[in-house]
Design a protein around this nucleic acid. Structure first.
Length: 708
DNA sequence: TCCAAAACAGTTTTT
DNA sequence: CTGTTTTGGA
């Protein structure tokens, strides 16, 4: 007699849900009902009394996924969400650090730096240390610091071998010190600090290990080394770690995700049960066949093949355009006809590899008057006016927050110029204090009066804040800081003013759902940047990158720009692992479509103000040709033989220099490579992608290329 | 302090 | 080509 919760699941799904309390790995293919399994597992554990809500730790990557999971579980059973430890890695680490801030060595009101704030802090340090930011770019340092933290390394743990690497480590050291001084933590710090807390504090670790009997992780293929290490600490020996993931959908290696964690998990935890969810409930046969065929070209897979009980369905439609404009025109026309046939615009997606591709498509859609929505871009809490407002709130919570202070000390302008700020920074540096302390101790020099007024204003806010509810606090701050007046006076400040009003609403909502606590609200703002933009539910075509489409599905999908150099991207082509990640990206893209999939490409494309020519993506060639239907003028499956003059350039060598795109050549210095583009005839340039040296533009006349 | 011109970069991105 | 950031001058 099956349990009522698992009655609607297939045998593999049900088996996963009802696994005994032990470590398990669920390989969940695209569209295989992964979220159902995860949520039903939790509901099953709770309803069979094997686990109390407090004994459960459930981790996801995004707030969106966490919210959806909570929603689905509470629809299955009544639950008090506050007692549940369910959230993102960062959210859960933050929660733990707030509870044990003293043990973690953090101030009670520590602020969370987002990436932009982290970058500006690094820039400030470079300036303070008088370091050449050409030689040591802030962005490089940011990546360096985050990468080390994500591998569990403090500055003291980093190896050095020359002056350059020693300097990098020194800056990392300074960064650590400065964060500690200011009482701020960047995103990776939340994880590392929490990891260190648990690893050093035996009793705390024991406490959480005995508490969280069941640990469930979503999108396990996206975990980085530190996140896995954190899970290992919490899982200890006794607890059951239930990991769900899909190695074929690992597309975030570039930001530190380590697919290898899946394999390591199996061996390190002696996982007895690996369950594969291979039945796909989303797409029809041809689409799955294409996806399976493409991903089969990757090596080192854990192994999995999607199948469906649905019919084969329609062929995959291919459109080869001469230019990116023509590609866009085709998409618009075809999408319009789909909508005319009664399909919802919401259920049609246009996917691309790089954001830059959306421009041409947007233009075509706009001209045709087709409503569309682009995902990506600025999010609510990232807006300038919101950042300013949050900076004031952060100063109320923690005046030692130099980042916040610098952001608003002179915004709205109140006569505190660069000179004054520099002298404050100087004296803070000398005295080893925060800018706030330096400013209060009269280090301002000429601008002292304005600085004093500013300090009094912040002090006044802090006094008035006590006992106020969050929305009133925000309101008060908007008035006292002069932010509201500033945007009111600005004739283009109307929208910003509205956003500030929206911030008060956000505070109201927050107080209702969570608590009336400034520090908690600020954490929330840092960890959850909010929706990308308004209008999410309008009836409109959905435009997004393939990355952003992961987890979503659509009736019809346009996958565009399927050209070598774009997808797979130029920067990935020299590295076998990177190409495999691109291929997984292709796999993700294909599996978004339920019934209809279009693949489009352009022989020429405007990129960075230059026309670039490209051949069809290798990924397109990897789809069995019988699954494809070529829509325009009987173009041959491989290469381009169409009537466009560009095609001749791609197919046959130019008489002037005898080079052709796709031709294998050898260079005396760079070795073997393939011609990917050229311009300007015999006196022009040729682009060659070298096996070892990467992609280069060379002068045809001097390059001494030998055809192979 | 502010604005305009010049310089520059340009896969993918959540927290 | 185009959006962003830096720089320099008024």
């Amino acid at each position: 007699m099956p349990h009522p919760l698992t009655a609607n699941l297939n045998p593999e799904q049900a088996a996963a849900v009802e696994l005994p309390p032990e470590h398990a790995l669920i390989l969940a293919g695209a569209g295989s009902g992964k979220t159902s399994v995860l949520t039903t597992r939790i509901a099953w554990l709770l309803s069979t009394g094997q686990c109390s809500p407090a004994g459960l730790l459930s981790v996801t990557f995004t707030n969106k996924a966490a919210k959806e999971m909570l929603l689905r579980i509470t629809s299955m059973m009544p639950l008090n969400p506050r007692g549940l430890w369910m959230g993102t890695f960062h959210g859960l680490c933050n929660r733990m650090l707030r509870l044990h801030w003293r043990d973690a060595g953090l101030p009670e009101a520590f602020a969370i730096l987002d990436s932009a704030e982290q970058l500006s802090l690094i820039k400030r340090i470079l300036k303070a240390l008088n370091i050449d930011d050409e030689k040591y770019p802030a962005k490089v340092l940011q990546h360096y610091i985050n990468a080390h933290k994500e591998n569990g390394r403090r500055a003291g743990d980093v190896d050095t071998w020359d002056d350059y690497s020693r300097m990098l480590r020194l800056i990392y050291e300074e960064y650590e010190k400065q964060c500690q001084r200011e009482g701020v933590a960047d995103f990776s710090e939340l994880l590392l600090r929490c990891y260190e807390l648990l690893s050093k504090n035996e009793s705390l670790r024991a406490h959480y290990q005995s508490r969280f009997r069941h640990i469930l992780v979503d999108e396990f293929q996206d975990t980085n080394k530190l996140q896995y290490a954190w899970l290992k600490l919490l899982a200890g020996k006794e607890n059951a770690l239930f990991a769900v993931g899909d190695d074929d959908q690992s597309i975030y290696a570039f930001r530190g995700a380590n697919v290898g964690n899946m394999h390591d998990f199996q061996t390190e935890f002696s996982v007895k049960h690996v369950i594969r969810l291979e039945q796909n409930y989303r797409s029809q046969g041809n689409i799955l066949d294409a996806a399976n065929a493409v991903i089969a070209n990757n090596r080192n897979r854990l192994g999995k093949e999607l199948w469906t009980s649905e019919p084969a369905g329609e062929p995959i439609r291919v459109f080869e355009a001469a230019t990116d404009f023509e590609e866009a025109a085709f998409i618009v026309e075809e999408a319009q006809s789909l909508i005319r046939d009664g399909n919802r615009a919401n259920d049609i997606a246009i996917l691309y590899r790089a954001n830059a591709q959306s421009r041409v498509i947007e233009h075509a859609l706009f001209t045709a008057g087709v409503p569309y929505r682009v995902y990506g871009g600025l999010r609510f809490f990232e807006r300038q006016e919101i950042k300013h407002a949050l900076a004031y709130l952060r100063l109320i919570a923690n005046p030692g927050d130099d980042n916040a202070l610098l952001r608003v000390m002179n915004f709205p302008t109140r006569g505190i110029g660069a000179r004054t700020i520099e002298s404050i920074q100087e004296s803070a540096r000398n005295a080893g204090t925060s800018l706030w302390q330096a400013a209060c101790s009269g280090a301002a020099g000429r601008g002292a009066a304005a600085v004093k007024k500013f300090a009094e204003m912040i002090e006044g806010m802090r006094q008035q804040a006590t006992g106020l509810a969050m929305p009133e606090l925000v309101d008060m701050m908007l008035d006292l800081s002069g932010l509201r007046a500033h945007y009111k006076a600005d004739k283009e400040g109307e929208e910003r003013l509205a956003n500030l009003g929206e911030l008060i609403n956000a505070a109201t909502n927050f107080v209702q759902e969570d608590e009336n606590n400034l520090i908690a609200f600020l954490s929330h703002a840092s960890l959850e940047a909010g929706d990308h933009q308004a209008g999410a539910h309008e009836e409109a075509l959905q435009l997004m990158t393939v990355h952003a489409s992961k987890g979503l599905e659509f009736h019809a999908v346009f996958l565009c720009g399927l050209e070598e150099g774009l997808f797979p991207h130029d920067n990935s082509m020299n590295d076998a692992n990177a190409v495999e990640e691109e291929r997984r990206l292709m796999y993700v893209a294909i599996t978004r479509a339920r019934r209809r999939l279009y693949i489009t490409l352009a022989q020429s494309r405007m990129l960075h103000g230059q026309t670039r020519y490209a051949v069809a993506s290798r990924f397109m060639q990897e789809i069995p040709q019988q699954l494809l239907k070529f829509l325009n003028r009987g173009y041959a499956p491989q290469g381009y033989s169409g009537p466009a003059t560009l095609a001749s350039k791609i197919k046959s060598p130019t008489p002037e220099h005898g080079l052709a795109i796709g031709m294998n050549v050898e260079h005396p210095k760079f070795g073997r490579g393939v011609v990917t583009d050229y311009e300007g005839g015999a006196s022009g340039n040729v682009q060659v992608n070298f096996a070892d040296a990467g992609s280069k533009w060379l002068a045809v006349a001097y390059a001494k290329l030998k055809a192979l």
